[in-house]
């Protein structure tokens, strides 16, 4: 009961904090927060493959990019398209790409999966560059207006205002994260962990490993697409190097590892730490990535469980201390 209460308190504080953020923070801090949230969702979608299914993807940015380009292309080509379906189109584009690739991707795992995803993201990079008359190539597409949303009771909400867009984006991102969390708690989530730990056994239990992998890939790609789509709207531009650059597939991976592998919320912590690090280093932007990579190496070498492990360790230490105090001051009295 007490734990439940604490949990609800924490949730209320997080939601209240997110709600109050535009009133308290300036425009710059708000943008940093929203950017972090977008990359947190991207990292979470990658984590679905990495922590739960044990597949290391070196090309997850292609789904992010598919979402971004899908949304932006529809937005700029078709006028008068409402906002919410635009995000849906981003997700659909990423899922479509995942469906297209899944017959090949589900056959492999381990190193081969990493190399195959890397190959596909390179193909996508080259294709986007080649189709520069559609995608804008290196310059990308920019300067599009975000359509406003009309909500029945509230009226028309202008998305050009940072505040409104923030509320819209953060609710979509939060909802996506919650759906993903729920997805890991369903029986299918157990199959995911089963595939990670012992694929043969999953086969013997009567589940098709390739089919399950394809579903997981589509789900993961879909949420990466949502993140990419919101990213494109948020940045108001999409370019090859922005969404498909050399580091764009690695940085969510790094976030997952810094946060903590094998947990659901690890990537959120990792992304948050990454943002804090970048902001701390904002006086020396050239060294920021260097420090980031050193942190990653240090985490892998000395704290393989990630930052979240620190919390767990502190928690168990605190439990032990509490037990010790109880033993000393309460139990002894009983015995005496």
């Amino acid at each position: 009961m007490k734990r439940q209460f604490g949990k609800w308190c924490a949730w209320a504080m997080i939601l209240g904090g997110l709600y109050m953020a535009p009133r308290v923070l300036g425009v710059f801090e708000l943008n940093v927060l929203l950017g972090t949230a977008i990359f947190a969702l991207f990292s979470l979608s990658l984590n679905l493959l990495l922590s739960f299914t044990g597949l290391l993807s070196f090309g997850h940015a292609m789904f992010f990019a598919a979402g971004a380009y899908g949304t932006v292309l529809v937005l700029t080509r078709l006028s008068g398209f409402p906002l919410l379906p635009l995000i849906g189109i981003g997700a659909a584009a990423a899922i479509g790409l995942a469906l297209l690739l899944s017959p090949l991707l589900v056959r492999v795992s381990g190193h081969a999966f990493a190399m195959l995803t890397m190959a596909f993201s390179q193909i996508m990079y080259a294709t986007v560059m080649k189709l520069s008359h559609i995608t804008g190539g290196n310059d990308g597409i920019s300067g599009f207006a975000i359509p406003s949303v009309s909500i029945p009771v509230v009226g028309v909400v202008d998305m050009a205002l940072e505040q409104n867009f923030y509320y819209f984006a953060i609710s979509i991102l939060g909802l996506s994260a919650w759906v993903m969390w729920f997805f890991t708690r369903t029986p299918f989530g157990s199959i995911m962990v089963g595939i990670r730990d012992n694929p043969e056994r999953v086969t013997y239990l009567g589940f098709s490993v390739p089919l399950s992998k394809a579903i997981i890939l589509c789900v993961s790609a879909g949420f990466a697409g949502v993140a990419g789509s919101i990213y494109a709207l948020f940045q108001n531009m999409v370019s090859v190097d922005g969404v498909l650059g050399p580091l764009s597939s690695f940085s969510p991976l790094i976030n997952c590892f810094i946060g903590g592998l094998g947990t659901f919320i690890g990537p959120i912590f990792g992304t948050g730490i990454g943002t804090i690090l970048l902001e701390l280093m904002s006086a020396h932007p050239e060294q920021a990535q260097l420090v980031f990579s050193l942190v990653l190496i240090a985490i892998v070498l000395f704290l393989p469980g990630g930052v979240i492990m620190l919390y767990w360790k502190a928690n168990t230490r605190w439990m032990a201390v509490r037990q010790n105090i109880q033993n000393r001051f309460f139990k002894r009295r009983i015995y005496e």
């Binding site: 044990g54 290391l56 190193h111 690695f250 990653l296 190496i297």
Partner: peptide
């Protein structure tokens, strides 16, 4: 089994580190 992931990630970290 996670060793593969950690080794790959370590080399990724070293790659980024060298480049930067």
């Amino acid at each position: 089994k996670a060793l593969v992931l950690f080794e790959l990630m370590l080399t990724v970290g070293i790659m980024v580190c060298i480049e930067e």
